[in-house]
């Protein structure tokens, strides 16, 4: 009986973990740009000194042209409420031809646990 409960608890924990990850994402919003750049990796960590979440989004420019793209990030607290931050405004990012690009962002406050990052042209 005990084993069954532990199994159910384990499955529930797994589902909870998946849900938390799903609420954060990074995506290219422009349809034309989607064919030109690709997000290849998203790294996250919480800085042990500051307690702030850090993001590093890596992508590639698959074309032969230099581009200046824009990105913005929305931050949410653990309950899904959106937090105000200057990072919500579009920021410019140089993306060189046939090369990787990196977006490095730090959360505006410790309360920021989830994010939505958008890349546009």
């Amino acid at each position: 009986m005990m084993k069954k409960w532990l199994l159910v608890l384990g499955i529930l924990t797994l589902f909870a973990g998946c849900a938390a990850n799903k609420s954060s994402y990074a995506k290219v919003v422009d349809n034309k740009l989607k064919k030109e750049i690709t997000i290849t990796d998203i790294k996250e960590r919480v800085n042990s000194d500051s307690g702030l979440k850090q993001l590093q989004i890596t992508g590639t420019n698959d074309t032969d042209k230099y581009m200046k793209v824009r990105y913005r990030v929305e931050w949410y607290d653990k309950d899904g409420f959106k937090l105000d931050a200057i990072g919500e405004k579009w920021m410019e990012l140089p993306v060189y031809q046939n090369a990787n690009f990196t977006i490095s962002i730090i959360a505006p406050t410790k309360a920021a646990t989830d994010y939505h990052l958008f890349i546009n042209n």
Binding site: N47, D49, S50, L52, Q54, I86, G87, K89, M91, E92, S104, I105, I106, P108
Partner: peptide, 19 residues
Amino acid sequence: FDQAASEAIQSMLKSGALD
């Protein structure tokens, strides 16, 4: 001003000078 402020804040928070 938005760009300059945003870059300064990100850099300040990343540096750990305010921790």
